[in-house]
Design a protein around this nucleic acid. Sequence first.
DNA 1: CTGTTAGCGCCTTCAA
DNA 2: TTGAAGGCGCTAACAG
Lengths: 349, 349
Amino acid sequence: MKKQSSHATLTDVARAAGVGTTTVSRVINGGERVSQETLARVQAVIEELGYQPNQAARILKGERTRTIGLIVPSIADPFFSIVAEAAQEIARAHESLLILTVSNNDPTVELENLNVLTRHRTDGLLFAPAHSENRSLANMLDKLSTPSVTFDRPLYDSAVPSVVSNNYKGAKDATQHLIMHGCKRILCLGGEIDLYTIKERIRGYKEAVKQARLDAIVDTSIRDYESAKAAIESHFYSSNPPDAVFGLKNLATIYACEVFQKLNINVPKKVALVGFDDFELAATLRPSISVVRQPIVDIGRIAAELLFNQLLNPKRAKQSYGDQAKPQHIKLETQLVLRNSCGCKIGTN
Amino acid sequence: MKKQSSHATLTDVARAAGVGTTTVSRVINGGERVSQETLARVQAVIEELGYQPNQAARILKGERTRTIGLIVPSIADPFFSIVAEAAQEIARAHESLLILTVSNNDPTVELENLNVLTRHRTDGLLFAPAHSENRSLANMLDKLSTPSVTFDRPLYDSAVPSVVSNNYKGAKDATQHLIMHGCKRILCLGGEIDLYTIKERIRGYKEAVKQARLDAIVDTSIRDYESAKAAIESHFYSSNPPDAVFGLKNLATIYACEVFQKLNINVPKKVALVGFDDFELAATLRPSISVVRQPIVDIGRIAAELLFNQLLNPKRAKQSYGDQAKPQHIKLETQLVLRNSCGCKIGTN
DNA sequence: CTGTTAGCGCCTTCAA
DNA sequence: TTGAAGGCGCTAACAG
C-alpha cells in the first residue's frame, strides 16, 4: 500500500525506475544528459504513477512560482472580466497561472489579498487600486520585492507602473460632441465619486463645459436603478431641465436609457445621451447608444506584458520612487463611437 | 546587506528577535505558549521586516495549499464570470485562493490546465468540462486525489459531483410557452452542438414540439452575427417560414434580435422569440425579451460549497465510481421570465 | 551519463 | 515558556 490519497514524489519515481533522484529530476526538466533507455524507462514510470512535480518544493528551492496575482474590484463586471481574460492569456503564454482575488474596491480587503498573495510568493501583481491616493499601499509595494503593475487606475506616489485609459480626454470628447449638437444643459450622471476613473471623467466633462461657457451639472448619486430614476426625475421635472446626459459609466447610462423609456422622454429629440464605456447591445437598443469606448483588452494585455517585462528584465525592477527613472505610466486613448442617442443620424447597423 | 530583493524568512525574524525559530513559528500560528513579552517583540520584528510566511514551505510540510483551481471555457463570458465571482467568494470564506484558468472548451488545453493545477497541488478543482463524455478525463480525475466538482456540465462515468441547470426542462418550458401562444413552426437556433447544455436544451425543445405534434426545426449553424443573419434569412425568406424562434443561448438570441430588427421582421407579431439565458438589457430592448433564466450565482456558490464540503469531510471523498454511494449530481431549476417577445402582453418594466 | 548530498523555509516532535 | 533537530520534495553542486 502506498501512502493514502497522496501524490507520487520524485523519490517514488526514482525508486520505481531504479535510478537516482537526480536522473528523474533531469528527465522532468528536459531530459538532458540522460541516456535514451533511462529516459524512456523513467518517463514510463512517471506516466504510470501519474507523477506531477510538486511545485511547492521547486519554489522552496528558489524557483519562480509561475503565478501572478490579479486583484480586481469585481470579476462579474464585464470590464474586469475582459481584463482578466486578457491577462490570463498573457500569463499562460509565459507558462504562469493567474490567481484571482476580488477587492470590492475595499482597501482593507485589498490589503488582505495583497498579503495572501505575498505569502504565496506570486511572481508579480496586477491590480486596480481601490484608491489612487493610498500612501501606505504605495510604500508597501515599493518595499515589496514583487513586481507590480496597476491597471484602470494609477497608484500615486509609487514606483508602480500603470496602464489606464485617457478618461479625461474621452469624457471631454464626449461632452464636446454633445455641445456640438447644440446641447446647453448637459447633466453628468454617475456614482462612485471616489474612483480615479470617475474623477478623471468628471474633470474632462467640466473642462468641456467650461470651455463652452456652460454650466456644469454633476449628479453622482446613482447607485442603482431606483436612485437613477429619482435623480433623473428630479432633474427633468424641474423648471430648467437638461437637454443632454453624459453617463459616467456603463450602468449609469443603461439606467438612464431605462428611465427615459419609462418616463417617455424621447432620446435624442428631448435629451441627447452619450455614455462612458461601450456595452453589448448598445448598438441594438433604439435609439442606439453613442459611447466612449475603452480599449479594454489592450489594458489587460499591456498591463500583463509590462509585468512580465519586469519579471524578465529585473534590472530596472527595483527603481524606487524618486530615482530619475520614473515608472512607466501608459495612457491609452479612447474612441468616441457615434450612434444615434447623441443626435447623430447614423445609419442603423 | 541582506539578500537581494528577497523575502524575509522565519529564521531572519528569529535572529532579529533573538529567539529560536520555534518561537517565531508559534507566534505566527496563534501565539500560544509564548510569553507576552516575547510575543510582542517577535510581532514587532515581523512588522518591521514585513515578514510573510512562505506558503511553499508550509505546503511542503503537508499543509493544504489553500488554493482551489477553477477552469472555465472563458472568463469574459458573463455566465462564467458570475460563477467565478461566486466561487471566489466561497473560497475566500474558507481562506482559500482561486486560481483561474481558461480552457476555450478545448480538451487539450483543459488537460494542460489540469496538470498545471495538479503541480500546484490545489486543494480542489472546480471546472466546466469541455466534453461531458471524456472517459480519459473521468478516469484521471477518479484516480487523482484532488476533490473536484463540475458545474454547468456533468462529467459522465466518473465520481465527480456536478451542479448544473435543468437545461432540458428550461428549454421544454420555453418551447411549450411558445406553443401555448399558438406558434406552429418553432425554429431552434444556436451553435456549439457539442456542449452538454446545448444538447440538453435541444432535447427539451424536441420533446415539447413532439408532444404538440409539431415539426422540429433545428439550426445549429450560428457562430457569429453573419452566420446568424444568413441562417435567419434562409429560414424566413422560405416558402414556409417559422413563426417563432427559440434561442439556444444568449448570443443566438441577441443576434436574432438584431437580425429581425435589421430585416424589419416584427417581434412578436411576425415571429415570437424566447431565449435561453437572461441578459442585461433583455428587459430594456423593445420588445423586451422573454428568457429562461438560470440561477448562475447558485451554480457557482453550490459547486464551491460542495467542493469545500469534500475538503472538510474527506471520509466520502474517495468513493470511486461503482461504489453504491453515487456522486452527488445537483440539478437546479430554471425560471421562465416572461416579457414581450414571446407575445405576452406584460407591462413594460 | 549517473548518483550522493546538502539545503530551500517551515512545522513538529522531543527535550530542557 | 523555550530551543534544537529532522524532514517535507526538489534541484544543484559535486563527485564518480
